[in-house]
Design a protein around this nucleic acid. Structure first.
Lengths: 112, 112
DNA sequence: CACGAACGTAAGCTAGGGCTTACGGAGCAC
DNA sequence: GTGCTCCGTAAGCCCTAGCTTACGTTCGTG
């Protein structure tokens, strides 16, 4: 058994390096070595990040000769997007009944 | 200066406790003590999480007497949603889902 | 005024995530 | 076969995020 595993997509995207990997894979599918070349970390580190992303269902891999090409998974990303969209909709329309007129984000301050 | 601060929304949502807070705030705006009551952590811990969420622009706070009511920020959540949507669209339409002859540029060598 | 409720912040401890180096296996070319 | 490339995994180190406890502040109520 490896050290750990199986986190959800949110924890996977919580790491900035993994977000950089996702952003890079959004451009085009890439192999591990290619990703490592444009990142300030070693290739094994990239491999470990890709494992987390794969466990989270955000990427899929595909063997091409000795290389292993990773790409984004529309299903995984779409699931997160929908979840975030739910929160967004709730924040936008859901609060009306309890709150007051101006709902659209107002920083700190108050005076009754 | 505090210990640290100012992380983006992705890192803020990376923590499961903070996601629980966001999910709870999606139901209704709540004060710190209310959130702490339904979470397995202390009130100061909730306060620290709320600070991170606030710095990330995901929540806004509002003083009501001695209490401090937090609510979700549609703008912050919408920004993350849009960013995630971009990745999703790229993954969906950007490069062919199946049946791709040569998508992976040409790094060193190739042989199908 | 005093007292309590509600909160933010400082200090400190601990567990775990991210990184590196080292190793072993699979695939292709010769 | 040998050799090289590309990759995943194991072992280990170290730093930081998250937690608790303790304290100071603000606001409301009597």
């Amino acid at each position: 058994m490896p050290a750990y595993q199986a986190r959800d997509g949110w924890e996977a995207l919580g790491d900035p390096t993994r977000r950089a990997i996702v952003a890079s894979l959004a451009e085009r599918p890439q192999a591990v070595g290619e990703l490592a070349d444009e990142l300030p970390i070693s290739r094994p580190a990239v491999s470990q990040h890709l494992r987390v992303l794969k466990d989270a269902g955000l990427v899929t891999d595909r063997a091409v000769g000795t290389r292993r090409v990773y790409r984004l998974s529309p299903e995984g990303l779409g699931a997160l997007r929908d979840q975030l969209d739910t929160f967004w909709q709730r924040a936008l329309h859901g609060y009306q009944d309890i709150a007051e007129p101006d709902v659209t984000a107002r920083p700190t301050q108050e005076q009754p």
